[in-house]
Amino acid sequence: MRGSNMTVVRGGSPVVAGASCVIRPGEVTAICGPNGAGKSTLLMALAGLVSPAGGEIDVNGRPLAEFQPRERARVIGFLPQQSEAAWDVDVRTLVGLGRLPWRAVPGRPVRAGKEADLAAIEKAIADMQLEPLADRPVSRLSGGEKARAMMARVLAGEPQYILADEPFASLDIGHAADLVRLMKEQAARGRALAVVMHDLALAMNHADRVIVLDKGRVAADAAPREALNEELIARVWNASVRWIGDRGSQALLV
């Protein structure tokens, strides 16, 4: 997935201005940046949910704008910020919603669907370690369990690309670490993941690549150690910081 020179205008002003980036299969790409840098907007543009005013996005060598909505939904999975389910469905039903882009006939119930649907749903549940919770209503899940269930919903659609907007936002470190590990497993199986992250240490230690956005422009697009160096963080976030610790388990001192 390649976005070149993307400009996205929202409410009259450009939120993303001439950004270019590549999301590669087999990698977890972290998208970082200060508040209002355009991270979510960039992610939505890559997901095909807002159309850029300028620039181009290619997915597997084809312009994203040419995809039909259903076709796009089968290739790109999107997890919005603070996902909630409006109705108190059980986990398996929730995960089953991920199969909607694959349904053949309108109105055919997802759960009674083809073998492929059922297999994908069970696999997504297993991948996110939700088997014991599969029949539990979503309202009775903890924050970490809910985040995993929402991710399983995306996985059930078997997308090549997974774009997630701050899936760790309200998770404690234990649950965040679980989710990161499970997401890295997905990358290892050849999926491409682009994840908006606020926690720079999480990006530093776990991402394969980091894109730093600053005022709608790409300030860095490189390996974590290169992209998140102390000078760049000082410049973009306007905070003096220091990395401590060993490679793979670094912490950020502010």
Partner: peptide, 15 residues
């Protein structure tokens, strides 16, 4: 059904 996840998620599911 897709709408229960919110408008953005529904769009991403092809609605």
């Amino acid at each position: 059904d897709a709408m229960m996840l919110g408008e953005e998620a529904a769009l991403s599911l092809g609605v």
